[in-house]
């Protein structure tokens, strides 16, 4: 049964990208376990505003786990202790009465802190702009099944396309590597006939951009796939390696 709990939240405060950050601890009483984690932060901010203090800045948008905007490194896990959910889908019933919850921003050289818990993830947009698309003259709407795609390929492409680009993979990686993200974005197109045409160029361009932006070298620890809220598999990384190497060998 959900009940109301009293908690302490230890939150990273940082006024700007260049400022020195620090932790501040806040007490919250009577938080319903039925509320979501972000609702708890809303309650905290309401309280801070009423006290005339600066509210905590954090990223959020759709609050239903599909936009990839929310982040937060909660008690040693990106997106908190629950499995396969984003922070916005995390509920307070995962925490107990009297607990101190530590909330930190993503920490990686590729994602600099903008303020408090908000980090700059535009590096992911730049990687997508480098090649995460198909350039086709669409013409009219084609008939269904005019391009046959095997069932298993369609499913693998769909699984890869589930990536919402939240950056949890980079946040948890000891190498600060973005390989899970890039591999999902390369795979979702490389598996389909429409994406095959530009597959070689795409793999090379996206990997080059990823390296240029200072993300680390993947060492296959697999931490990313454990924390991914969308269950993206590291077998996508093997596919990206394959795509990239065969593209380079064809040059």
């Amino acid at each position: 049964m959900d009940k109301n709990i009293n908690i302490k939240v230890k939150i990273w405060r940082q006024r700007g990208p260049k400022e020195k950050g620090f932790f501040e601890t806040y007490s919250l009483e009577n938080i319903s376990q039925g509320s979501s984690f972000l609702e708890m932060l809303d309650i905290l901010n309401e309280k801070l505003i009423n006290e005339g203090k600066e509210p905590v800045v954090f990223d959020h948008d759709c609050r239903e786990g599909i936009c990839g905007m929310c982040s937060l490194y909660i008690n040693g896990h990106p997106h908190g202790p629950d499995e396969d959910v984003t922070t916005c889908q995390l509920h307070m019933r995962k925490f107990h009465d009297g607990e101190t919850i530590t909330v930190e921003p993503w920490r990686s050289a590729g994602f600099p802190v903008i303020r408090d818990l908000m980090v700059n993830r535009s590096a992911f947009d730049e990687i997508m702009q480098a090649g995460g698309y198909v350039s086709v003259n669409t013409g009219g709407v084609p008939d269904a099944n005019s391009t046959p795609i095997p069932k298993n390929k369609a499913e693998m492409a769909m699984d890869a396309a589930a990536c919402i680009g939240c950056g949890a993979c980079v946040a948890t990686c000891k190498n600060g590597s973005a390989m899970l993200f890039v591999s999902a974005k390369v795979s979702q197109l490389a598996l389909l006939p429409q994406g095959r045409i530009e597959a070689a160029r795409r793999a090379k361009a996206m990997v080059a951009k990823m390296d240029e932006l200072g993300f680390g070298n993947c060492t296959n620890t697999g931490a990313c796939e454990v924390e991914c809220p969308k269950n993206i598999s590291i077998t996508n990384i093997a596919r990206l390696n394959r795509e990239f190497l065969s593209a380079k060998l064809k040059d």
Binding site: K10, G176, G216
Partner: peptide, 22 residues
């Protein structure tokens, strides 16, 4: 990779289960 990780370390150590050897 150390550089890519950045200078800021998490206060709560990474609790993600990954193989120790890796």
């Amino acid at each position: 990779n150390r550089k890519a990780r950045g200078g800021n370390h998490y206060a709560v150590a990474n609790k993600t289960s990954a193989e120790w050897s890796s």
